[in-house]
Simulated scan of single mutants.
Amino acid sequence: MGFGVVSLLDAVFWRAFTSAGLRPGSAAVDADTTIHFWAHRSLLPSTATTTEQQQQQKRPVVVLVHGFGPGPTWQWAAQVGPLSRHFDLVVPTLLFFGASRTRTPARSEASQAAAVAALLAGGQHLPGLGPGRTVHVVGASYGGIVAYHLARALLQQQQQRQRVGGGGGGLALGLKASTFLMQRSLEDRREEKIELIKGMTTAGGSQLTPLPLEVLIIWGEFDQIFPLEKAYVVKEKLGEKAMVKVIPNSGHLPAQEDPKLFNRILLEFLLQLSNSNAAAAL
């Protein structure tokens, strides 16, 4: 793909994100780690009016976690528009993808999730993301593993708040655990990305344990990297609240190969989850 075409697509995908109300940001989540992200303007400091914040404050939040390959604008361009009609979005750039960096030696999916969880703690980076928000987590490919660990991290945060008397709001996590490894684009930060692959502990579902959450697993019918039967292995590992939806005639990247059907399935799940009474109190 020529440089001119890449630049054009970058602009198209950037436009998709800004048209969905997203703005880029950067957060030093600890002394060693900086996360770049996109977030709805109502979640960011000094970018939303009081009226807009009041109108948006009850909307659930969807966190989109990308996989290996190009950056999040490339991987989620087809989803941010439809999702933004119902949800406020946060789209982090995982460590060693794009400009997100850490000096810590950890290279696991859990360490990726911990960095995103620190971002989602709100504070000065995302002041609009406070108590009173329902949160759904959606991950694609490698991001599906990170989303699983992120769900666990957010549940732990919830339990800690309950122990110290915190309250208010709700937490509902919809994990879209698609397949687990995307085969392209290692050229940038190659050494660190190879370490990430070596550090993968849950590929194929071997280390997964049940989640006390509603879980949607979307899988391509003809995935050549992780065959369809792996979807049902993952379902069994994640427990009785997990379900599988198969995208017909799709491979490893159903969100990009059949975005219309993918978006419909995902939206039906998230909207049902948001409207249910199953969200646990924070």
Rank of each mutant, 00 (worst) to 15 (best):
L129K: 06
Y232M: 04
A77N: 14
A39K: 08
L216H: 08
G168N: 07
Q55C: 09
M200E: 09
G4V: 10
V116D: 07
P24L: 02
D188R: 15
N249Y: 10
T18E: 00
T47H: 12
Q75T: 07
H136I: 11
Y148K: 04
S84G: 15
I35C: 03
V61A: 04
Q54S: 15
L44S: 00
F97M: 02
H36A: 08
A255P: 02
Q112E: 15
Y142Q: 12
E109D: 07
L208M: 14
R152D: 01
L154P: 12
F226V: 06
R23Y: 02
R41N: 11
K237I: 02
T49L: 00
W219R: 00
Q124I: 10
E229P: 11
L119R: 08
G69L: 13
V164K: 08
P82D: 10
F180E: 13
T34S: 06
R184Q: 09
Q158K: 10
L119H: 11
A28K: 15
D32A: 01
T202Q: 14
V65P: 09
R101G: 03
G167Q: 05
H136V: 11
V63H: 06
T102C: 09
E257N: 02
N249D: 12
A117D: 04
P248K: 07
E191N: 12
L119A: 06
R190I: 12
P105A: 10
I265Q: 03
E268C: 05
S42D: 15
G143R: 08
V164G: 03
G166L: 04
H149W: 07
H40L: 05
A231Q: 02
Q156S: 12
L228Q: 06
S7E: 13
Q224A: 12
N249M: 00
V246C: 08
A140G: 03
L155W: 01
V233L: 04
V90C: 05
S108K: 03
K176D: 07
A115D: 11
L119Y: 09
L271H: 02
S178T: 15
G21E: 01
P131T: 13
I194L: 11
T93M: 00
Q207S: 15
L43G: 10
G71T: 14
L9F: 06
P212N: 15
L181P: 06
I225T: 14
I265M: 02
G98D: 01
A78E: 13
R264E: 02
G251Y: 09
L129A: 08
S7W: 11
G2V: 10
S19C: 06
Y232V: 08
V234W: 04
A153R: 03
G130L: 13
K235E: 13
L228D: 01
F262P: 01
L83I: 01
G174Q: 14
H86R: 08
L44W: 02
P259V: 05
K245Q: 14
A280W: 00
H136F: 09
T134M: 08
L126W: 15
N277A: 07
L120G: 09
Q156I: 04
P92W: 02
A99C: 00
K58T: 08
L129C: 11
E240H: 01
K230P: 01
V62W: 04
Q79D: 07
F97Y: 14
L213C: 08
